[in-house]
Amino acid sequence: MSTEPGLRERKKERTRAALIEAAADLFGRKGYDETTVAEIAAAADVSTRTFFSYFRTKEEVLFVDNAERLRIAQAAVRQRLPGERPVDVLTRTAQQVLTTDTFASELFVRLAPLRVRLILGNPALQGYALRLLLSGQTELARGLHETFADELDEVIAAAMVGAFIGAMVAVVMQLFAEVPDPEQAILVDQDHLVAELRRGMAVAVAGLAAVGDQPAPR
């Protein structure tokens, strides 16, 4: 009896993974708008009703790994180790995201270039991605401000998070925009991606070094 919940959870995870794989394959071959929920469900050998028990929309499937990375970042940015400055916390937060299993997974390598290609060609997805980005930035900026309430006001915290995330998003967009076929994503291997993201982080850190010289207006 004690093994039943574990078996049930594993089955649910397999179904979820099958839906994600089916969606990625159909989005890549047919396009985002041309793919229906019914087709994704059929390709995963489940009912449409089952699809909606895992995902509310097609967008959620395409951005399925976003929530976990945001959860990790939110937890990290609310920690303050001895001697850390705000830029140190952001750097550590980014490094934790880069080394998480979610970021390093085959799923991310498969979905990241597909997302970039679909976003660049679909205004509706651009809007969805922007809403996710702004929501995530707002949460992280709030966390950074609360962590350094004695040093940062809300405006500077928001500017710092925006600069940091903006640099990393720009690197990902640039790298994967150069990969027209998602199946060629392997050309952007994980080590290269992480190295380039660290370069982007270095640029952001250099720019944020002047934050201490920006007092709040009176």
Rank of each mutant, 00 (worst) to 15 (best):
S2Y: 06
S2P: 07
L7R: 14
K12R: 15
A18E: 05
A18G: 05
L19W: 04
A22Y: 05
A22T: 06
A23S: 12
D25I: 12
L26Y: 02
L26K: 04
F27C: 03
G28S: 14
R29L: 13
R29Y: 10
G31P: 09
D33W: 06
A43H: 09
A43M: 10
D45N: 14
T50D: 08
R56Q: 15
R56P: 04
K58V: 02
V61C: 01
V61D: 00
L62N: 01
A67I: 13
E68V: 12
E68L: 12
R69D: 02
R71H: 13
A76G: 08
P82N: 03
P86K: 02
P86V: 03
V87F: 05
L90Q: 01
T91C: 02
T93Q: 05
A94S: 14
Q95D: 15
D101G: 07
F103G: 00
A104C: 15
E106H: 10
L107N: 10
L107K: 14
F108R: 06
A112Q: 02
L114M: 04
L118I: 02
I119W: 05
L125M: 07
L125R: 04
Y128R: 15
S135N: 15
G136E: 04
G143A: 06
E146Y: 03
E146V: 02
E146H: 10
L152C: 04
D153F: 06
V155S: 14
V161E: 00
F164M: 13
G166S: 11
G166K: 05
M173L: 15
F176M: 02
D181R: 03
L187A: 14
L187W: 09
V188P: 01
Q190M: 11
A202N: 11
A204C: 10
A209V: 12
A216I: 12
A216Y: 08
